[in-house]
Design a protein around this nucleic acid. Structure first.
Lengths: 257, 257
DNA sequence: ATATCGCGGTTCTAATATAGAGACAAAGAG
DNA sequence: CTCTTTGTCTCTATATTAGAACCGCGATAT
């Protein structure tokens, strides 16, 4: 049993995205098909607590500084900067492509740390980015190691076709995941966004449950040839091992259900 | 008129701080003097949306990855890294002390960007840190340029004595603020935390309203002598001018009421 | 100049969601 | 083993919220 008011309010909050960072009361009400009175009350309550701010001229609302506070606390809790980021940076320099760490969170993968390639053309993504688990190397690597009932669960909520390469057939997906699980890594091209390749390897907690993935990504035209791929996978796996050791040592603190 | 349920829920959220990052249901209920049923419903609703996560072993709750997403969006909206941070870094290198940017948010100052000193002993603070406006150089610099009714408002909510140096008498504070306003900068020692000095200068929006402050801080034993102070203030003011120009140019987007 | 529209904000009341006490099983402590 | 404490769930009186209608304002159109 959940609180409907809070539930609605958090749903409202999710409309403040990178694509649509500001909303007027009636504008958002129309978008959500809800009475503008309700939206007004929700937005102004959030504003009272600093989670939203209202531009006094345009009267539109946007995200407030309170999120800086909470976001930073989560980041410090993860504490990846000290030990994990250097490993990622080294890997990124070695292969000359961007490297990122994706965390399992419900039915999504969340990018929690990034080491960008120094090349001018590179794969680039923001910390905090959320993607459904059935899309792309980083997420499918995670999904492949979940129990099958959770895999089915994720797919049962519908699978959106992000690009022509996105797999949207559940049976095909299950086969794909099995392959990933068997070989221990995942190679994709153009699933998450057009003309991007990715190579992901899994990371587990001390109980052997999947919690994250380490992924390398770059433009497809630089994608490794079939004969170079195994070598690159090995290098990524080696970096993943170092990170894994750190996780084991600190019995890493983020859960998957 | 606000939503009481949401209001309570956000109040609950604020108990997840750096000092107390994890809470059990009944533990938090006791702390807040609220029925544990209510807390349970609030926490589990937040959990459904990824704002909190529950450790499956200890059953305790802590902040979830959703905050990473929203925190990052706020950070990118501010977009200080590209232009303002380099200025701060240069200033920090020149004077060899930490430099930080504090934003006005309601009755608090929020640290939004930091350039740490390279010295081993240095002032250090997290992004997102919140302090009442009546404490410390960075906050008092902002408060000094607010209209008097808002100054009185802030003080009327009570003034906590953080350190022996904290000014808690409203009349004394008003005099102090006037002095800061007249000289255009603020110098304090040991107000925010023991044995720390700070020098703050104000930053305004295009309408001449105070929105932020640029502050230099370090250990008191390195605090500038009376004759060196004016020179250092000038250097800080020069950096502030550069930042000010950037704000003017982009008619800077964060509001103060 | 006047009318119209759409905006954020407010008020009202029926109807619904919530508060809060209490119960429960499970886990832990003594 | 018993006693305590935990998170979770159920119940009902009641406080809170939903949603329509309304308001005054400012921009736009006539």
């Amino acid at each position: 049993m959940t609180l409907k008011t809070l539930d609605n309010s958090l749903e409202v909050l999710k409309y403040f995205s990178k694509q649509t960072p500001t909303w007027g009361v009636r504008e958002l009400a129309k978008e959500m098909n809800i009475s503008h009175s309700i939206i007004y009350r929700i937005l102004s309550t959030f504003e009272n607590h600093g989670f939203l701010i209202q531009n006094p001229e345009t009267k539109k609302y946007e995200l407030g500084l309170r999120f800086l506070e909470f976001g930073q606390m989560v980041k410090e809790k993860l504490n990846l900067s000290d030990f994990v980021l250097p490993i990622m940076k080294k890997l990124s320099e070695e292969i000359k492509e961007s490297v990122f760490l994706t965390w399992l969170d419900g039915t999504d993968g969340v990018t929690v740390e990034i080491a960008e390639s120094s090349q001018t053309i590179k794969f680039s993504v923001s910390i905090g980015t959320r993607t459904p688990l059935y899309i792309g190397a980083s997420c499918k690597t995670i999904m492949a190691f979940l129990p099958e009932n959770r895999q089915v669960d994720i797919m049962s909520k519908g699978m959106e076709k992000f690009t022509p390469e996105t797999i949207t057939d559940p049976d095909e997906m299950l086969l794909d995941l099995e392959k990933i699980r068997n070989q221990g890594w995942c190679f994709t091209t153009g699933e998450y966004s057009h003309s991007v390749f990715g190579i992901g390897v899994p990371l587990f907690n001390s109980k052997g449950e999947i919690i994250a993935s380490l992924t390398l990504a770059g433009p497809v035209y630089r994608k490794p040839t079939a004969e170079k791929l195994p070598e690159i996978v090995k290098i990524i796996q080696y970096a993943a091992m170092s990170i894994q050791r750190y996780f084991d040592q600190y019995s890493f603190k983020l859960y998957n259900d």
